[in-house]
Design a protein around this nucleic acid. Structure first.
Ligand SMILES: [Mn+2]
Ligand SMILES: [Mn+2]
Ligand SMILES: [Zn+2]
Ligand SMILES: [Zn+2]
Lengths: 160, 160
DNA sequence: TTGATAATGAAAATCATTTTCAATAAATAG
DNA sequence: CTATTTATTGAAAATGATTTTCATTATCAA
């Protein structure tokens, strides 16, 4: 969606350097379809460039989260998951359904129009009422997926 | 809101025993105003009854979460926070504003009517479209609180 | 090209949560 | 009430994700 120069400028404009490790990490995020743990990102980035270390993955993800370029999610697995925000991909903003049994994560953006209208309205009210500058929001539904419901699912997608 | 016997039955009906430790933990949850970490709950429960151990706090919170009696939240601090659901208190169901700087957590339930209508509608659609039995939902707004915005806030409420 | 310094990776440290295990207490039948 | 079964307990050790430390290196503005 954006050329390499884009990221480079985006970083250096803020006094932050664009390094090879960071580039590898961003490439991984761009190539994946979301919801990656730091360890998973490390694995792929390290494959792209063996010089990349896990520590740097954590540090880079912090920066990107701070920049608003990635979302950091906690789905109750004891580790965080990351995915690019809409800003830097062609994916729509979306929300999640999380299966409490198998931990499967379903993205949905069906209700997007409706949701956005609703969220924006409520957001404006909250901002004023609580003197709060809202940066982003997370909406998540927990439940049991179809496969888990009818027992046809013994495997836990996220090894639990 | 409920007598002691209520909890007792609620547990034993499910083949789960009501122990002194569990009673202390529930008392703490009832007495507090929400958003407690396991460690915080342990401290207070242990004060109530020195026999209570931290392990049991974790185990009990798991059970209560499973039962739908408490919500487990992860606000990005690297540890979970718990609070009773509406079912067992007189507090309304509510959602959260979280300050990304000082980690302050604001409960709001202002929009409750509107929100409930919206959530229920969307929930019905999602359940059908994704064959998903929805149990609960979490809506959270991240941003910067007033005090952090105008610099008048050097302290980090949640020691960070 | 160079100098100041932001960034790095490896290893050690943290810290929340889980597991193990022998001892104990809660429910229930008698 | 007592005995019996077994769920539950707490302490200590283990785990696992994330953070910190620190000496070395790579980035980039000048
Ligand atoms: Mn997603
Ligand atoms: Mn709350
Ligand atoms: Zn499932
Ligand atoms: Zn704040």
């Amino acid at each position: 969606m954006h050329g390499r120069g884009w990221w480079h400028r985006r970083f250096t404009n803020h006094g932050i350097r664009m390094t090879q490790s960071r580039e590898a990490i961003i490439d991984v995020l761009n190539g994946a379809d979301g919801h990656l743990t730091a360890a998973e990102i490390y694995l792929k980035a390290h494959e792209l460039n063996p010089a990349v270390g896990l520590t740097t993955v954590y540090r880079t993800l912090d920066i990107l989260t701070e920049m608003g370029v990635v979302y950091k999610f906690e789905f109750g697995e004891g580790k965080a998951r990351f995915e690019l925000t809409g800003e830097s991909t062609d994916r729509d903003h979306h929300h999640h359904l999380v299966c409490m049994k198998c931990k499967r994560i379903i993205d949905y953006s069906d209700m997007l129009g409706e949701e956005r209208a609703f969220i924006e309205k409520i957001q404006a009210k909250l901002a004023e009422r609580y003197d709060f500058e809202i940066r982003d929001h997370f909406l998540r539904f927990n439940g049991i997926c179809g496969q888990c419901r009818n027992g046809s699912n013994n495997i836990n997608f996220k090894e639990d």
